[in-house]
Simulated assay, not measured.
Amino acid sequence: MSAGAEVRAWRPGLTGVVEVLHAHFPSHAYPSHTHDAWTILIVDEGVVRYDLDRHEHGLAQSKVSLLPPHVPHDGRSVLPQGFRKRVLYLAPDRLGDGLIGAAVDQPEYADPLLRHRIHQLHGVLSDGQEHLEAQSRLTLIEERLSQHLRHDVVTPPDRRDAGVAARLRELLDAHVTEGITLEDAAKLVHAHPAHLVRAFTREYGMPPHRYLTGRRVDLARRYLLDGLPAGDVAPLSGFYDQSHLNRHFRKMLGVTPTSFRRSAGRPS
């Protein structure tokens, strides 16, 4: 490893993402190599220059780079202080072999919405506890990337679909504790996952993962009012652990679950 380099890499447990990498390289330069995955790269500090299929490209902080599988590329810093980057590696079938040529021709996108969504997904994956949110955010990222590769980036029409939204809400209500994957929900509702997320958000004013979190907090409140300790309430109400419960409970109610439980039965 280059002097002063910092690397954090992990498998996130999110279907479709084979690896996440966060790295700071003050001086490292990548030799030419390939990946067997789609590589989604954003730069947080510095500027990166790279050759892809013998053509030179540059990536600044405002852009997103998508490197296709099996195509040689390298990487180096433009600035003397190096660069800081975050990378998602997607399984090859998430975008498909048919789009590799388009990615070689145009591997960078000046798309603030896409970059923001990628930034949000990295935050969710760093936490590792919000599975439905991660699935939803990945679905919208993949849809946006596919639009770029097919040269048909558009703003999705503001189309309401109350039936699809209602069926998803019924599924979320029926699986509050154990949860349900976005892919499974899409199969049961017979809708594309991205449409499912958008339809629900437009109909109810919040994305599916936020609705599910609210239902879990409501369930936790009932258990706490029944006198159960917070440590037991977390798994019973669908949270990863007590810390996970505490974070969402405080965000929604402004107090910890333990404080809420202590207040039970006391009139204002």
Rank of each mutant, 00 (worst) to 15 (best):
A110K: 08
G4H: 13
E142W: 03
D152C: 15
P12F: 09
P69Q: 09
P107G: 09
G75D: 05
L132N: 04
D44G: 11
Q106L: 07
A191P: 01
H33K: 09
D161Q: 10
A9M: 10
A9E: 14
L196R: 08
V64E: 03
P80V: 04
A110Q: 10
G227L: 08
A23N: 02
H119E: 14
T155N: 08
Y109R: 12
Y223M: 13
D93N: 13
V197Y: 00
R261M: 04
P208W: 06
D218I: 02
S126H: 12
Q61Y: 00
P156Y: 11
A191V: 12
L212Q: 13
G98A: 10
T258P: 00
S2Q: 14
H195T: 10
S126G: 10
S237E: 11
L219T: 13
R167Q: 14
I42D: 02
F249C: 08
H24C: 06
D74V: 03
A3F: 14
D161M: 01
S136H: 04
G16T: 03
L132Y: 03
S243C: 03
F249I: 04
V87C: 01
K251V: 00
G231I: 08
R250Y: 08
M206S: 08
V197T: 04
D184I: 07
F83Q: 05
G163R: 12
V48T: 08
I118M: 05
G16Y: 02
L41P: 00
H119Y: 10
R150S: 14
H192D: 15
E130F: 03
H24V: 08
T15C: 00
R216K: 12
P207F: 01
R11I: 05
M206E: 15
V87R: 05
D53A: 15
L212R: 13
